[in-house]
Write a protein that binds this DNA or RNA. Structure first.
Length: 414
DNA sequence: TCTGGGGTCCTAGGACCC
DNA sequence: TCTGGGGTCCTAGGACCC
């Protein structure tokens, strides 16, 4: 074989990040929560063994946590993002062909001569240089590499899947990458229950049932690559900032603060990536789980006459879009801002009705604001519309220090 | 009391055109 | 009265991923 695809996946990534700076957590049940301290999104093996499921709402597992003294952390994205970069940089030492697929996963192209010793070297190097344990699956396609990785996690951290059929026969079809709940139901109804069953279906049949997506999955299971490595991340097409509130929001004032805050964050992300937006959508929603209140959600979209990444222009548009959505008789649980039709900032057409001098002044203002706010999540300079106290902010009750990105939160060795 | 956030891709169907 | 065939573009919504 001339070429392999490896999937390198960090083990319980957020938990592992916490353990790097807090070795006492080793061997203990540990979980990391989603934003707003809502659900468990990362679990150590010890926590998994207790039966804590991925995405379990915290309030449903309170007893389990107390009973087994599970260590609980809020998400600390500054820390996880930084450690993720270190892992990815380490992987680039082994091949230039690295696709960063998510915060904790990367696909690597490796030569066909690659063997278990090489994988072990990669694994041990990442652990030594970053402190993060990874598992590596190797196969002929991305979809098979995913499955190999799945196997690796159950073994000693590496798996080479040369003859996949035996493994596919034992794997429920729902575990195949790209097969979600709906597809699982449909496939099972036709007697396809294992990955091997899926590998052997008729291509015309799967085309009718699942479209081109299904065909690709089946081909990949057969060892025929359909999903190329994306070495250069494609330009983003949209950008969304949304949050659940720490407590319900009822007043228009607070909702405006929140929407202005989310807009500022989204505008910053555009400037960071050198993009502008022509479309802005605001959405607000009540709690969809509330049994005694009907679920109300609504959204409004405004087009921007000139593509922009200016916080002030975008905030004006967002507040204007919010106005007709807001209803005084509702208790809101969540809001968000979505920016669409993104184009590179240097390709923006001149707007005949905007004075270029004013535009340049606005750009300079944003540069100053971004410099003042360079510390992650800092709010040294912001619009008045964002408010000061922000009582609706999400809960972050158990966040560990931002060891690697804040001088004042460096690890101290007594 | 308490249920995340941020994305992408694909398809079907409507409007419109020649 | 008859009422084709092929194409593009746009949008909404579904499905899925981590």
């Amino acid at each position: 074989m001339s070429r392999y695809i490896a999937l390198v996946d960090c083990d319980a990534f957020y938990v592992s990040c916490e353990r790097v700076f807090n070795p006492k957590l080793e061997g203990e049940p540990v979980i990391v929560l989603s934003n707003n301290d809502g659900c468990a999104v990362a679990r150590s093996n010890e926590a998994k063994a207790l039966g804590i499921k991925m995405g379990a709402p915290v309030f449903q597992i309170r007893e389990l946590i107390a009973q087994h003294q599970v260590q609980v952390f809020s998400s600390n994205y500054a820390l996880y993002g930084n450690l993720s970069n270190r892992v990815m940089q380490t992987l680039r030492n082994f091949t230039p062909e690295v696709e960063v697929y998510s915060i904790d996963e990367a696909f690597l192209a490796l030569p066909g001569t690659c063997d278990a010793t090489a994988l072990t070297t990669i694994r041990e190097t990442v652990k030594r240089w970053t402190g993060i344990p990874v598992s590596i699956g190797l196969a002929q396609t991305k979809t098979l590499a995913k499955i190999a990785n799945h196997q690796a996690k159950r073994q000693d951290g590496i798996c080479i899947l040369d003859q996949p059929e035996a493994v596919l026969a034992t794997l429920p079809v729902s575990e195949v990458w790209g097969i979600g709940r709906q597809s699982t139901k449909k496939l099972q109804a036709h007697g396809i229950t294992t990955a091997l069953d899926l590998q052997q279906v008729d291509l015309r049949w799967i085309r009718r049932q699942m479209g081109i997506v299904g065909v690709r999955i089946v081909q990949e299971l057969r060892g025929i690559p359909c999903l190329p490595l994306e070495l250069v991340p494609p330009l983003r097409k949209s950008c969304c900032v949304s949050r659940s509130f720490g407590r319900l929001v009822t007043t228009l004032d607070e909702m405006q603060e929140a929407v202005a805050t989310f807009t500022a964050r989204a505008a910053y992300k555009l400037r960071r990536d050198n993009l502008t937006a022509s479309l802005l959508t605001v959405f607000i929603a009540t709690n969809r789980f509330s049994p005694d209140q009907p679920y109300y959600r609504n959204s409004a979209t405004v087009g921007l006459s000139c593509p922009t990444n200016d916080t002030i222009a975008l905030t004006k548009a967002a507040l204007q879009a919010l106005e007709p959505l807001y209803r005084a008789d509702q208790q809101y649980q969540k809001a968000g801002v979505w920016l669409g039709e993104l184009t590179p900032a240097n390709q923006v057409q001149r707007d005949l009705f905007i004075n270029p001098h004013d535009q340049e002044k606005a750009r300079q203002l944003m540069r100053v604001v971004d410099t003042l706010n360079r510390q992650p999540l800092s709010r040294t300079a912001h619009c008045a519309a964002e408010g000061l106290r922000q009582p609706w902010q999400m809960r972050v009750q158990r966040r560990s220090p931002r060891y690697t990105t804040r001088w004042d939160e460096l690890l101290q060795v007594p």
